[in-house]
């Protein structure tokens, strides 16, 4: 079974982001970019499936500017076999990405798609569910554990009250939660090997997908700042403040 994983290039999770002065967005120039952490978990899960003999080939998909090739290379260095980049400098929203992925899935016919449950830039948490809908496939979202068997998958999901177990038919879309696995680091020899692995570059037009944004971003602003508080010396002082100043206990 082929497994397709999606990897998004996002501002590194350690970077403190800055809102642009003209309120059109967030500053991305000269900022460290990395693979979305949830997507690293998706790549790792696919590699483990290959190591167990459940996956035959891992395709790493990305969409966005040319630099997304670096993100795909990271996936290839971790252990993916080849990459597909839908290259565009246009703004991509989740529905458009889901449609681009559907076009690639139609062509590649994977038995399973694994994506991160959300990207840490737009925090949408939509693409996996949307892709499953467009394909008419089942969806195992917020996966904490994945067990692929013949024609179906058991998914343990992280939900509000704890964990939930579902059984879904394959092909399916899985979205990863934090506890699914701990992604590996790419070794130096594997980073070197990854440079020789192929990346196919496609244009959205060639896939016949309309990627025009549906949501218009009117402005992006700094959140309201909390005014800094005080340090207290003793528990008695804290209890007094909570009771008589804040009035919360």
């Amino acid at each position: 079974m082929k497994v397709l994983v999606a990897v998004k290039r996002v501002i590194d999770y350690n970077v403190k982001i800055r809102v642009k002065a003209d309120n059109t967005g967030v500053e991305t120039a000269n900022v460290k970019m990395s693979m979305n952490p949830f997507d690293e978990i998706a790549v790792e899960e696919a590699i483990r499936m290959k190591e167990k003999g459940q996956a035959t080939e891992i395709i790493a998909f990305s969409a966005g500017p040319a630099q997304c090739q670096e993100t795909i290379r990271t996936a290839l260095a971790m252990g993916a076999d080849r990459g597909v980049l839908v290259q565009t400098d246009a703004e991509l929203q989740p529905l458009a990405v889901a449609k681009l992925m559907k076009a690639v899935v139609d062509k590649e016919q994977p038995g399973l798609v694994i994506v991160g449950k959300q990207a840490i830039d737009d925090d949408s948490n939509q693409t996996g569910q949307m892709l499953a809908a467009l394909l008419g496939w089942s969806q195992g979202t917020f996966a904490n554990k994945l067990n692929v068997a013949d024609g179906s998958a058991e998914v343990k999901r992280e939900v509000d009250g704890g964990l939930e177990n579902i059984k879904i038919k394959l092909p399916a879309v899985i979205t990863t939660d934090l506890r699914l696995n701990e992604p590996r680091y790419a070794s130096l020899p594997n980073i070197m090997k990854a440079k020789k692995k192929p990346i196919e570059v496609l244009a959205p037009d060639a896939l016949g997908v309309d990627i025009a944004p549906r949501l218009k971003v009117l402005k992006v602003e700094e959140p309201p700042k909390r005014k800094s508080g005080i340090k207290v010396k003793t528990v008695a002082e804290l209890v007094d403040k909570l009771k008589n100043e804040a009035g919360v206990i």
Binding site: I11, K16, I17, V19, V26, I120, D121, D122, D123, V217, L218, K219, V220, E221, E222, P223
Partner: peptide
Amino acid sequence: IYAGNAMAT
């Protein structure tokens, strides 16, 4: 967006 470090309208 960005873990609440920016607000998009």
